[in-house]
Write a protein that binds this DNA or RNA. Sequence first.
DNA 1: AGCATCTTGATGACATGTCAACAAGATGGT
DNA 2: ACCATCTTGTTGACATGTCATCAAGATGCT
Lengths: 157, 157
Amino acid sequence: MEQPRWLDEREQRAWRGYRRMRRLLDLELARELMRDAGLSEPDYDVLSDLSETPDQRLRLSELADRMLWSRSRLSHHLTRMQQRGLVTREECATDGRGAVVVLTAEGRRAIEAAAPGHVAAVRRNLIDLLTPDEVAALDALTHRVVDHLTGRNGARG
Amino acid sequence: MEQPRWLDEREQRAWRGYRRMRRLLDLELARELMRDAGLSEPDYDVLSDLSETPDQRLRLSELADRMLWSRSRLSHHLTRMQQRGLVTREECATDGRGAVVVLTAEGRRAIEAAAPGHVAAVRRNLIDLLTPDEVAALDALTHRVVDHLTGRNGARG
DNA sequence: AGCATCTTGATGACATGTCAACAAGATGGT
DNA sequence: ACCATCTTGTTGACATGTCATCAAGATGCT
């Protein structure tokens, strides 16, 4: 192991601030979402992704990939959401192994009721606290890190 | 419900990038930490906070507050870490209810072995991908959000 | 002091996430 | 077609996090 380059003071502050913000923002958004819409953040994310697809339906593996979830996690979570009537499963016409997740009417109602308040919470607790330059910096920096972590380097957004 | 101000394109990109980065960075750092040091991120955070205190010991409630964890979570986690020999509990001299968490020699060895690699991973996957301006922006922006989230009580604004 | 009330930390029940194993079906080489 | 091998999604065991509750001790009021 080489001698590590420790973080300097500013880098340390940025790293700690990031982790603290992440935790507090998570807690606050989850709290508001549960209180106002009866949904957890994972619930919201599933419903949100589904509602953005043309037919409100996705192959399970496709949804798992988009959400960066394991298939196991998604399968477990869908079982719970299905019991609450938010989604259903259908067989896949083109692949006998496959399953398709479908948004129910109730699921659609839930996400439409939840979205405005959730967006407002994101604004109030993050976006509106930032200058336009900071929003731009966050956009650029997060996508660079994502590109790095997903292996495709170079593409600048 | 009021008319929501939806996120514009740049804001949406920033928000989605943030969430995607958060997920991928978490996975990568946790993966490396477990592989190289046999520690989970929560393990690392507990050991790290403890090792930074003068006597390598903290009141349970003090540690919970620093980490933004519930006492219940911390108590459960310490039980598991205690079984692995990383920390011990001692009674508090000044408060009969109180408990003090103490870093063991093995815990100290574990955090000292883990830290260089973890810092290197944070550099490689985040800090070194950022320009100095972006590090400064991240510092400023995260602390502003943290201040916002800690500076207010319960009620909606 | 006596009494009510808060604080601290532990605990059990339960919700959620991870991991490995598995069955059924797709895929590709021969 | 045959067979080995990959892919898909489910499942059960287990690790982790949350929530409500509890016992013991501190604190404050009179």
